[in-house]
């Protein structure tokens, strides 16, 4: 198959379709900065999806739980060893994503006889100052995208675009607190959920056309058989580890 370029491209395309089909129903994840750090949030059904990787790095992913776990361990191990052998300040997200993860994702995706990872990852790195906060998304094919203010991962590109458009249209507010960030994040999540519930051909349109009330209904419905999960990297945390999962009470104060 390798010496027939057309069939190779076709096989890659089949792979892409297969993976996207599996990812499409995944619960999206939203990442936002706020006045005291960065938050990652989603609504999940039991499986934990937001994790601490290192002192200033957090991870979330959608996809197959086995793949998420394996790749989460890869990045956690690499960061832990690097942080110990040098100093924890020497661990940085750019190296972890571009050198360790992107390469692993790409290799698995393109070796068409082997297994591919069904995964999309979103990582957050709390900078020394807020201008250095970074979100990095990695696609199952190894493509990397970096954002500063907010970032999302969803089942398909059009779901992500729909969510991003909503976040980009929200008023820019450097003093946005955690409560407001969670609220905005949940609204973007609701848009992602709405788009992923539509038939594939309808999601091509990124025009969502739902109002705030409908968003709140979607969030309320999702909470009936799931839970909001949110993790923060906060500058106010004592000590070197900045990650913490929010408790139910903190999340509930932000609910509409």
């Amino acid at each position: 198959m390798r010496d027939e370029p057309y069939r190779w491209i076709e096989a890659i395309q089949d792979r892409r379709d297969y993976i996207e089909d599996q990812l499409r129903v995944g619960s999206p994840v939203v990442g936002l900065t706020y006045n005291e750090g960065m938050v990652l949030l989603t609504i999940g059904r039991g499986q934990r999806k937001i994790f601490e990787v290192h002192d200033r790095i957090a991870l979330s992913a959608i996809g197959h739980p086995a793949d998420i776990e394996r790749l989460r361990m890869l990045v956690t191990d690499t960061a832990s060893v690097q942080g110990f052998q040098n100093a924890t300040e020497d661990v940085n997200l750019h190296r972890l994503t571009n050198f360790v993860l992107a390469h692993t994702f790409k290799q698995a995706f393109e070796s068409i006889v082997g297994e591919a990872y069904i995964i999309k990852m979103l990582l957050a790195e709390l900078g020394r100052t807020s201008e250095h906060n970074r979100f990095t998304g990695i696609n199952y094919d190894g493509n990397v995208r970096t954002d500063a203010e907010f970032s999302v991962i969803g089942g398909t590109e059009s779901i992500e675009t729909g969510m991003q458009n909503y976040l980009a249209a929200a008023p820019v507010d450097a003093d946005r607190d955690l409560t407001d960030a969670i609220r905005l994040g949940l609204e973007a999540w609701a848009i992602g959920r709405e788009l992923s519930s539509r038939e594939p051909e309808d999601t091509e349109s990124e025009d969502v056309q739902i109002d705030t009330e409908q968003m709140h209904e979607i969030i309320a419905a999702a909470r009936e058989d799931g839970e909001i999960e949110a993790g923060v990297l906060e500058t106010t945390q004592h000590g070197t580890s900045k990650f913490r999962l929010l408790n139910v009470k903190e999340i509930e104060t932000a609910l509409p």
Binding site: R70, L71, M73, L74, D77, T78, V81, V100, T104, A108
Partner: peptide
């Protein structure tokens, strides 16, 4: 470290 030698995790 690569994905092939991720150790068994305890």
């Amino acid at each position: 470290m690569s994905i092939k030698n991720v150790i068994n995790h305890k």
